Amino acid sequence: MPSETPQAEVGPTGCPHRSGPHSAKGSLEKGSPEDKEAKEPLWIRPDAPSRCTWQLGRPASESPHHHTAPAKSPKILPDILKKIGDTPMVRINKIGKKFGLKCELLAKCEFFNAGGSVKDRISLRMIEDAERDGTLKPGDTIIEPTSGNTGIGLALAAAVRGYRCIIVMPEKMSSEKVDVLRALGAEIVRTPTNARFDSPESHVGVAWRLKNEIPNSHILDQYRNASNPLAHYDTTADEILQQCDGKLDMLVASVGTGGTITGIARKLKEKCPGCRIIGVDPEGSILAEPEELNQTEQTTYEVEGIGYDFIPTVLDRTVVDKWFKSNDEEAFTFARMLIAQEGLLCGGSAGSTVAVAVKAAQELQEGQRCVVILPDSVRNYMTKFLSDRWMLQKGFLKEEDLTEKKPWWWHLRVQELGLSAPLTVLPTITCGHTIEILREKGFDQAPVVDEAGVILGMVTLGNMLSSLLAGKVQPSDQVGKVIYKQFKQIRLTDTLGRLSHILEMDHFALVV
């Protein structure tokens, strides 16, 4: 994948999101292997301009796509893939009243899908469409860049269908997702969380590099694949309309690839034109409109599966009536509230959605109805927002919020430890010299600072030695090549209790 991002070429006709291997024109390309080798690009942008032909009021008969309808489940399912879809609609009884809503608040519980998330729908649909058009064949390999849930859905379907599955996901995604993927037989590649989507090191860039190296491999490409919004247009939206008897006044959905909100909203605009569509985008993402909503100094966020630093091709923002931004604290607070007060075992993005819903639905009156999409299960986040310690460490809970008995030293300040200034190293000294210094002084790690004293990161003896043994660096290389740029900081005025929580999850903390 090139470091400079080429513009994806656009073909003359058809839909841009065809499933299957992508040609340089962004659509299915038939021909000899030699032709494909000559024409197939190194990668295709996940934010390529959409060429979708959908228009409100256009006859369904003019759609270029294969459409399906929700099917009634048999008493005995032939395999677990038949437990994807037909998820329950559940009334939220307490939270709406707590925040003064007059309307009825309903939750579409997508964590009841077989793999635990709304992404099971698009995973199965992308595979079925690729099999139907002859792209996927027995023994082929599926590769997908994902925040985890699409990966789980694909790995689940691949396990049943017999495909090899490789999932490329950023490091910030939970260990629970990784464990589930491994249990399903998927191979996992992790990428830096802070890598831009168009960087060769991003999950998108690495996935395309693997595709170019592995024979008979395919990126189904949830960011561009029409099967993504079509899955929701054909099934999720129809289920909502049936469950609500066609009567709903507002739908609120958090947005990642945009397939969920695009597919549902398009069908609702056709069948229930008075329904307002509300999009939820986390602070630090750029999906919301108008652009002024996205202006923030924050560039990272903890909530998973929603928000991006690019506009995915499948996201149709014209069908969203209003956007709201959400933050991590309210997302996790509301997710825990949904679990504790409503018994809905949902993930953090569901918290984002409901946090926005109780604001947006203030305009609705008694007798009206708001539906929220709860995308995934708490299963993926047992060591994250479900953990009091994690919430404390991230600053989303305060010590006084917890009532468990603490040891005698818990409320003492870090400054009472009488710490001395640490050994520091410059980023320009060599790895070999740094190892000598650390061994001589008896230290395992040291902060790396520039000549102005600005902290650049941390270097550890173990990481340097393993990097040297693996051949990633040489003793003569500058130590700046092996620094940890993500590390926890703590102030002298913070409590030892807070430091204790940090050290339970990290090997060190830097006192500043």
Rank of each mutant, 00 (worst) to 15 (best):
C272L: 11
P78D: 09
A107N: 03
G185C: 01
H218F: 15
E270L: 10
K39R: 13
A155H: 04
S50D: 08
P145D: 04
I44W: 03
G31F: 15
A60T: 10
G57N: 14
V118W: 05
I240Y: 01
A237W: 01
K119C: 03
I142Q: 00
I214Q: 04
T262S: 14
E171A: 07
Q55R: 13
A265R: 06
I167Y: 07
G256S: 02
D198F: 06
L81V: 08
S147A: 07
R161N: 11
V118P: 07
V10T: 10
T146F: 02
N216H: 11
A157H: 04
A231P: 08
A48I: 09
T135A: 12
K211Y: 06
S63Q: 03
K30M: 09
R190E: 02
I76D: 07
C272F: 12
P49M: 08
R276W: 13
P273A: 05
I188H: 04
G31A: 12
P215W: 06
L105M: 01
K267I: 14
G256H: 00
L28R: 03
L210K: 12
S227R: 08
S123N: 09
V10C: 11
P2G: 13
W43M: 12
A155D: 04
A195M: 05
D249V: 01
S175W: 09
L136W: 05
T193V: 14
N216A: 06
P59Y: 04
E213M: 12
A186Y: 00
G20E: 14
M126K: 06
P192L: 02
D179N: 04
R266P: 03
A159E: 07
C275W: 07
E171D: 10
G14K: 09
P46W: 04
S61H: 01
E37C: 09
G148T: 01
V168N: 04
A38K: 09
G115Y: 07
E239D: 10
N194D: 13
W54E: 06
E213Y: 03
P138F: 12
K102Y: 03
Q222F: 00
E37H: 08
S32L: 09
K72L: 12
A130Y: 00
P59D: 10
T260Q: 01
D221M: 01
H17G: 12
D79A: 03
C109N: 06
K39A: 12
R18I: 11
M250P: 00
W208G: 03
L241M: 14
C109Y: 05
